[in-house]
Amino acid sequence: MPDYERLLAATASLDTPYAIVDEEALWANAADLIARADGTPIRLATKSVRVRSIIKNALTLDGFRGVMTYSLPESVWLADQGVDDILLAYPTVHREALLELAAKDHRLAAITLMVDSVDGIDYIDHVLGAGHPTINVAIEVDASWRVAGAHLGVRRSPVHSKRDVKKLAQAIVERPGFDLTGLMFYDAQIAGLPDSSFAVRTVKRRSNAELRRRRKRIVKAVGNLTDLRLVNAGGTGSLHVTGTDPSITELTAGSGLFSPTLFDGYRAFTSRPAAFFALSVVRKPTRDIATCFSGGYIASGQAGESRVPTPVWPEELSLLDAEGAGEVQTPVQGAAARRLSIGDRVVFRHAKAGEMCERFDEVAVVTSGGHVVRTPTYRGERKNFG
């Protein structure tokens, strides 16, 4: 269990609400990710961090190589800050950022765009015009498992089969102004699904077997058309599985650094919670309820209990079913609430990783020695990438 009293003592001078990162747990988690990757380089998913100093420090570790971004304006910004290996994980239609990309050689060298259709290539041509400089692109392949008419996985790329991918790859190779350099396979039904039951573990195992066979065929087919410099796959929840596939050149992870509550249900690995936020008690409506200021930091995804923040200190606190985490106030209940007074602090964990950082201008990084380094988030650097 994290030493919450140490974290609160170190940050006692800060006014709430504020975000905390336990540096010791953060780098222990990084070491665990590297160990589970077992020699396969990890591309750091920036959306799961959104703190530039932590991203920069992670990239100094032997085992991390390059970043996976979520927007083109973010990619351009990071390239201008010196990051030289950037894979944009999602298609873009951001016109200004496309023009900025094409305007500087260092951006063109650093950034690889993601596409999944000829329409996406056409759009880039339309924005940049004829004769634009060569743009590095990768194809995202649908990594979902299609079985018995069901679609197990997320709805991302429309290209799924070897035939689909080869057709798109051929069109890109023949198009002036583009260099097809990579493939990406995000196996959400494996990496993002907790090991909650025998049935789930069976689905994950069988899905991985199907994807591994299909990925091998796709990589070979596209490799006959172009020089593939990267084949990206996996996520925090599947490093130990996907990393054994010889068809890939790299893995992706990010959430595992912070270890939010959505990762508590995995059995194949254990990481240490490293990111938190603290709220102050501002009222006591009853003896058994303490109400904190702010806290309604709900995670994205299908709405439900798994997306709400979790009070973790003092122990044995819970949200009220009728109110949950509120926009301005968050009541908590339980035996521990009886001991809370006005001004006391309650520590919460977010359901997701980087999304917490969109709520704060900075994070208080607490070192093993109890010192605090206050470092800006993307938001604190006045960056909002959607």
Rank of each mutant, 00 (worst) to 15 (best):
F185E: 01
L152K: 09
A148K: 13
L193S: 04
H106T: 09
I111N: 07
D164Y: 12
F198H: 15
H106C: 04
A138M: 13
A110F: 12
L98T: 06
V115D: 03
G129Q: 12
G149D: 06
H160N: 02
R155I: 11
G177W: 01
V83F: 15
F178C: 08
A148D: 13
K162D: 03
H132N: 06
D85K: 14
D164T: 08
R95T: 09
D179Q: 09
S117R: 01
V159Y: 01
L193M: 14
S144Q: 04
V137C: 11
T112K: 05
I190C: 01
F198P: 02
L128V: 07
F178K: 10
A109H: 05
G192N: 09
N136H: 14
T112S: 15
A110P: 00
T134Y: 09
D84N: 13
V83D: 06
R107E: 05
R146S: 04
D125Y: 07
K162M: 07
R146V: 00
K104C: 02
R156V: 00
G82K: 10
D125L: 11
Y186T: 00
D122F: 10
Q170M: 14
R156T: 04
R95G: 02
Q170E: 12
Y186C: 03
S196C: 05
S144M: 05
G131I: 12
A130R: 15
A97R: 02
K104R: 15
Q189E: 08
V93A: 14
V173M: 11
H132M: 07
A188Q: 03
I121M: 06
Q189K: 04
A199W: 13
K167A: 15
L88E: 02
R146M: 05
A102N: 05
D85Q: 15
V93I: 14
D119R: 14
S157R: 06
L99R: 15
L168P: 04
Y90P: 00
A169F: 02
A143H: 00
D85F: 09
G129T: 04
P194H: 13
A103K: 04
S196W: 10
S197C: 06
T181M: 11
A191C: 10
I135F: 11
F198E: 15
D84L: 05
H106E: 12
H132E: 03
A171Y: 07
A199R: 14
P194E: 02
D119H: 12
V93C: 07
G149L: 09
I172R: 04
H94C: 01
A110W: 08
L113C: 11
I124V: 13
L99H: 09
Q189D: 02
G192Q: 06
D195S: 10
A110T: 04
H160S: 11
R95F: 01
D84K: 14
L128E: 04
H94L: 03
V141A: 08
A199V: 13
V118D: 05
G129Y: 09
V147P: 00
K104S: 07
Y123G: 03
G182N: 07
L183C: 07
Y186D: 00
L183D: 00
L152V: 15
I111C: 10
H94F: 03
A110L: 12
A109I: 02
G149Q: 08
Q170R: 15
A138V: 02
I121G: 01
I135D: 02
R155T: 06
E174S: 15
L108Y: 10
E96C: 05
A109K: 15
